[in-house]
Design a protein around this nucleic acid. Sequence first.
RNA 1: CGGGGCGUAGCGCAGCCUGGUAGCGCACCUGCCUUGGGCGCAGGGGGUCGCCAGUUCAAAUCUGGCCGCCCCGACCA
Length: 574
Amino acid sequence: MLWSKLFIPTLREDPADAEVASHRLMVRGGYVRQLSAGIYSYLFLAQRSLLKITRIVREEMDAIGAQEFYLPALNPAEVWQESGRWDVMGDNMFRLKDRFGRPLCLGMTHEEVMTAVARGELRSYKQLPQIWYQIQTKFRDEPRPKSGLLRTRQFTMKDSYSFDVDAAGLDRSFDLHHAAYGRIFSRCGLRYFDVQADSGAMGGSQSNEFMVVTGAGEDLVVHAPGSNYAANMEKAVSVPAPPSASDPEGALEPEEFATPDQKTIAEVSAFTKLPETSQMKSLVMAAGGKLVMAVLRGDHTLSETKFSALLGAQEVRPAHPEEMREALGAQAGSLGPVGVQKMRVVADEALKGRKNMICGANKDGYHLKNVTPGEDFQPEWADIRQVSAGDTCIGTGEPLRIEKAMEVGHIFKLGYRYSERMGLRVLGEDGKELTPIMGSYGIGIERILCGAIELYHDKDGIVLPVSIAPFTVVVTPVNMGDEAQRLAAQSIYAACKALGLDALMDDRDERPGVKFKDAELIGIPYRITVGKKLAEGKVEITVRAGKTMLEATVTEAAAKVAELAAAAAPKPEA
RNA sequence: CGGGGCGUAGCGCAGCCUGGUAGCGCACCUGCCUUGGGCGCAGGGGGUCGCCAGUUCAAAUCUGGCCGCCCCGACCA
């Protein structure tokens, strides 16, 4: 295509309201323009790149036998009411009414619609397994859209759903997706982590997230560089760093002592001159209308995800001050597990084997010392602790790293939730009805592009992987007024196209500096510069990643780029 | 929803405190010039100063309300 005819509105300066690199560069590079908070117009370059991404996704989904559908984004309330998510989704769902007042919503995901199709049509176990997918626009009324295309109110998702006769079948469908996702993200050129994740309150057993490590991300991944361990922060486990002071010896009895105005762990630690690791933190939480006490080492943080999973509760919140006072007779800052009868007490396993520690006395202004978990109080033991910096890997003992990351894909085993509630049944081999088991698998299409840009950019702009760049190569005649250059550039451009390269011809009557800057900004992997060396029959090939440069003759330039591109973006194995 | 910031030409910003002709750079248009890193010269077009109300002889500027956008937090099957 001819650059002079295209709409690629690059900006010389950074947009004022773009914070993260992908947002800033996509606006500057003329990929996108914002229409409203969390709503973007994808211009020519973004659309080309997104089409390349979706093509890769399609190829890999088709390769595992998945079938592409296209489902309505506009959904009647009924199906969401049947699944129970009409209420669960709350304000995150865009809702509207039609002219007759019938409630509708814009789809956030498509479990309901897929299940509705399935229950109308699937009759026999012989029709299973099925994997259905679509690439569709999703709508979520985010409380805070942010970071450009990272968190938007309208976005594109590849979502697939599997239907199997039994758990073993679901395992196979899950594994197929797991492998396909790895191929998809690799082919898109992403460096990613495949992490164990929490499956959330919506049911389901196994769950993996595909995460791209970037400071722009909103999640945290915990990983050990030397081993295979990687997990979402919510689910991660670790060996805690040892306490910084050893516990006092002896079978000591708990003893009350005054701690006026010392409430936080830090305050009590300073007051007692004993480190935070010698304190016990007692948190009273309300779950499902009941109070539960969580006891942790002073320097540790409660993982609300693990805690609520343990309790099987949908919602866990800190107890109100009145609730604490009523149940324990003291306020936060002086609470402790000793003598507590009215509520469950769950202690984190990091406290196992510890003795003679300090905790609140359930009496304002007082704490207890010489408290030994398991002796002076009998808790339920569980891992309810969030991994923290300094912890080590359970498997290898090496230090764990905690890094910010962005979720680009999520696969998980749904179980029977939707099929059960929405009445999806087929006849089994034995002639009895059975409820198919489902899986759900999502990929954020725009997030792949964002992730690639976050990972690969420099001060001059975007450095996209060949497989998802809007163009593979740009042919840049330095001086359009020079006929020899123009003709040579045209022949190279034609040769590129003949080789099937996605080529762009920068035929604009611009200064060379402008053309170079623009090509670098928008991230085209290769540039063939036709300039002063043409007198010797030579042109230059510049590789955007690393800005390396090599020479080639006019006749061989296109083939050389094709070779480089093929090496950089291998095709899928047949 | 809580905290902070910002709204003036397509983009980036100044002007506002101390009320009185709406500015600068980039981009855009015309002409000349130039052609290996966002050239140069000359001329030109483009604004309900976010919206509404108030104060005033007079409001981009002061006051009040509203709206929008960005950032932090809460939230995120």
